[in-house]
Amino acid sequence: MRTSNVSYLVKKGITSVWKNFVMSFASFCILLVSLLQVSVTVLFMLNVNIIMNNIENTNEITIYVKDGATQEQKDHIQDVLEKDENLTDIAYKSSEEALEEFKATLDDVAVLFDYLPKNPMPETFLVRVKDLTKISYSVAAISSIDGVDQVKAPYEFAAALVNIRDTFSIIIIAMLVTLIAVSIVVVSNTIRTSVFARREEISIMKYVGATNGFIKLPFFVEGMFIGVLAGCASFGLAWFIYNSVFSLFSAENFSLWQMFGFFNLIPFNKIMWVVLAANCAAGALLGAAGTVISTGKYLKV
């Protein structure tokens, strides 16, 4: 098809938005609500992931080194820990450092420890686990290292966190799938109504020799254009909602929330272009998909 005719059809599609304002506005509103719901859910999920990561990062495994372990054994432990890909932030604490830290927590009675014949604190390695679901494998591997006396790990904490994350992921995915499915059905039905109102125009075009592509293109452009407009509006509203929530949790008096890592919420300006592009692309895709589904029936002339 000639470029001039393609641009004519594109222009027709865009002007149809204003010509069929009521139906266009209905499609716009439905797309806006759908996209906004999906945007807010995705943004919520992203932040919950970050918060969960923050909480996960507070986990710590303590590895007690056997009393009298040789330097060679301690080096071997360090070496094995560093090679384990599930472990991070590996730190060695000597018995002297451990004793000093402990004394610092005791204030006045700390002086009593000066009379002990021998430092009772063991040497330790402190490590964090990257993937909490694999904590038991890591602990088993660490326990078997020569020179390791005992390993203390927050199993219950890890299990609870993994449980919460899994449940949450299932709920979010189910919500997203439902929202997208409902959006496609509602949008295609709305566009179907718009196409139905113009079925006469479509049949005339078929009778005078228009190909399906020629007929569909303006509807396609119209659906995409409404979708992109709805995407932009959804982006603006998501921005407003997000910033309102962000400022709420960033307030100084929310120290409890901050304790759980809420201070690490993603600033909107860091993700705004991705959110805008995703909204516009999803809007265009939904609009176009709705059009393709809806026009087919009226093309059989």
Partner: peptide, 16 residues
């Protein structure tokens, strides 16, 4: 579609 473009049709109810 190609065939229909090769003929001209005028409908009773105009179909404009």
């Amino acid at each position: 579609a190609k065939f229909r473009r090769s003929i001209g049709v005028v409908f009773q109810e105009f179909r404009l």
